[in-house]
Write a protein that binds this DNA or RNA. Structure first.
Lengths: 209, 209
DNA sequence: CACGTTATTGATCGCATGATCAATATATCG
DNA sequence: CGATATATTGATCATGCGATCAATAACGTG
């Protein structure tokens, strides 16, 4: 039996405690989804009374929205850095597809799906979702514009192409959340699709590892 | 003021009452999402005591799962009939993309997104989701196989291509749920993407209206 | 018309959620 | 060392959820 008894939490600076609570929310969201980001669950994880969580947050809606934003912003930074290490737009685009569809980020996918659903009842979260979608789109659009300028990507609307690409990726990942066992096949045909979308020859986006 | 007073409901046959409850759940899900499919909300909508809803259903999880299945199965039938009226695989595939991305089915999209999220905590719903995804995939796979046999679709794995296609569609629709205002542009580039995926010449899937 | 079957209901339980507030304990400062 | 500021807490409220069950009322049948 785990003993859920809780001793009084050590007194800490507001900044430190606030950060601990945010971190507890982040871990909880990645492990069990945004639905599990609840006043009491966070308090238990942070080893703190439920009231303290409320004390440091204007509302749970806001905390959920912030948690979502943190998780996704981290992922964007991580992937952007990953892409920056590639030599050119074709490699970057191929690597983008591969890394986002390799099944290693299902925890983030769950957060996305739940955010879409919960956003209809949590306006702050909905705003965060739109914001992070825009951030993702900016990254992808940058790659496509670069490719159009220097690598033969044929598109007159890089912004729309970026949205299309993100939609494809999100949909495939969301699907894989339910249809277990196809993690490997998840991105098997997306290279051909994207090549067709951007007027590239077949195989243009193949991995170079 | 709407008067929420409820008179005793007329006595009806179990079959009829059961159908009324299922219908109330269906409407509620389409109007407000699966999250709103709740014991009391359905009872209110059906003009019946909450206990009666419980009386006719083994559990709310089961009712939610059935409601989801009904809604999606209806949509599949509707779209399948719509496709059957088209002359050939190319027209069918183009029409499939157009009708699923024209933004007129956002109510169903919400149901899908919520089902993905809720399925993690409702096993019956998760099973329904897998079932309906398979049904959708079968329809799409049929079109692709037909196209491979008679219309030059180039693919060695119609099943995988069908999954890919559904993923793209679902993702774009889910995105549009949050990013209002791009309903018209939603499917602007998917024709090119699918043409690339299936090795078709550009414009092969253009509408013939 | 009386009676029995059963559709329907009100009341209630247990649990979980977010939120509020006076009370308490602790760190720091004078 | 004492006092003040404040981080922390327990208790509690209001709300909503699913579920259960004895009691009630309506229908159909004999």
């Amino acid at each position: 039996m785990s003993t859920p008894v809780r001793t009084r939490a050590a007194r800490k600076s507001p900044a430190e405690r606030s950060a601990e609570i945010a971190e507890a929310a982040r871990v909880l969201a990645l492990e069990q989804g945004l639905t599990a980001v609840t006043l009491r669950a966070i308090a238990a994880r942070a080893g703190v009374a439920p009231a303290l969580v409320a004390h440091y947050q204007p509302s749970m809606d806001a905390l959920v929205a912030d948690t979502f934003a943190t998780i996704v912003a981290d992922e964007i930074d991580e992937v952007a850095a990953f892409l920056a290490a590639r030599p050119g737009p074709r490699e970057r685009l191929g690597a983008l597809l591969d890394t986002l569809l390799d099944g290693t980020r299902d925890d983030v996918t769950i957060v996305w799906v739940e955010a879409w659903a919960m956003g209809r009842r949590n306006e702050a979260l909905a705003a965060s979702v739109r914001e992070q979608m825009d951030a993702w789109q900016a990254v992808v659009q940058g790659v496509i514009e670069d490719g159009a300028a220097t690598a033969g990507f044929q598109t007159t609307d890089a912004a729309a192409a970026a949205w299309q690409l993100l939609g494809m990726i999100d949909g495939l990942n969301a699907q894989a959340l339910v249809r277990w066992g196809d993690a490997s096949a998840r991105g098997s045909m997306i290279h051909g699709a994207v090549e067709g979308m951007l007027g590239l020859e077949r195989g243009a986006l193949a991995a170079h590892d």
